[in-house]
Design a protein around this nucleic acid. Sequence first.
DNA 1: TGTCTGCTGCAAAAGGTTCGCAGCGATGTC
DNA 2: GACATCGCTGCGAACCTTTTGCAGCAGACA
Lengths: 148, 148
Amino acid sequence: MTEGWERRLRDQGFRITPQRQLVLEAVEHLRHGTPEEILVEVQRTASGVNLSTIYRTLEVLEDVGLVTHAHIGHGPPTYHAVDEHTHIHLVCDRCKAVQSVPASRAAGFVDALEAEFGFRTDISHVSVHGLCADCKDRSFEPEPDDPL
Amino acid sequence: MTEGWERRLRDQGFRITPQRQLVLEAVEHLRHGTPEEILVEVQRTASGVNLSTIYRTLEVLEDVGLVTHAHIGHGPPTYHAVDEHTHIHLVCDRCKAVQSVPASRAAGFVDALEAEFGFRTDISHVSVHGLCADCKDRSFEPEPDDPL
DNA sequence: TGTCTGCTGCAAAAGGTTCGCAGCGATGTC
DNA sequence: GACATCGCTGCGAACCTTTTGCAGCAGACA
């Protein structure tokens, strides 16, 4: 688990609680998790934890820079720990598979946006949608009903 | 307004209704519109139109390829007509301003994803988040409460 | 050990989207 | 032009995710 997370919280005036530790562990374990998924993971250890606590905790952990979230389209946001390398999510609109790609692959694009429009991109915040290699070749087949 | 929209609908077995015409006009007029904003625009002409009709109509119009939607983060999706040039939305996380950039600016990035991962990107579907030129320079000031 | 105040669980509210249903009206036919 | 069909709409309720208010609990510090 991210070392120094306790300091991170305490330094900003937050308290250390079991719930916060469990949420952080869950996020790191899941790598990509929606609040609901994080709740389930946390409840494997502490069944009494409430969903609203998950939301409030994620907000706090994001405040102190221990986690971030990204949007992958219609669904709820997914959270992940910040100690991992920054990455981009490639979301397949057909099979819903999520693939992670180093953010460095977008460096040229990001630099161009900054140079041309003065826009400083947070590339990891929103996912890239499209068709994955597998689905691209199968696009004539009927869509799966609910691949999740 | 997009010519041939009636044919587009009829060919797929859909009916032509005033509501569908108004929604399409609203989307084209607004350029970027959430369902709620589209409702308001439509109601300037026909006050009786219901929000659920907006949702259902947008779904139909998207089915036949007359509109598409994109996600700009937390909020609801925004719809736009497909006859415009494909573009990317740059969303400022601070002032919420949305800037449109030709999708061609991402060509290199898109091509790289296809070459390296076989991923065919629909670059316009999800917005790019970050800080616009103005906010980048003012990032030490307090955030505006609600810039909308 | 005790006090203070932040944090949590619970329940209700809020916001956005979907659904069921009855009636209306666009379409094709006569 | 009138008629029958069934797709579309308006309405209200349901749903799902996220937020909020509140009372009680518990972490931090003395």
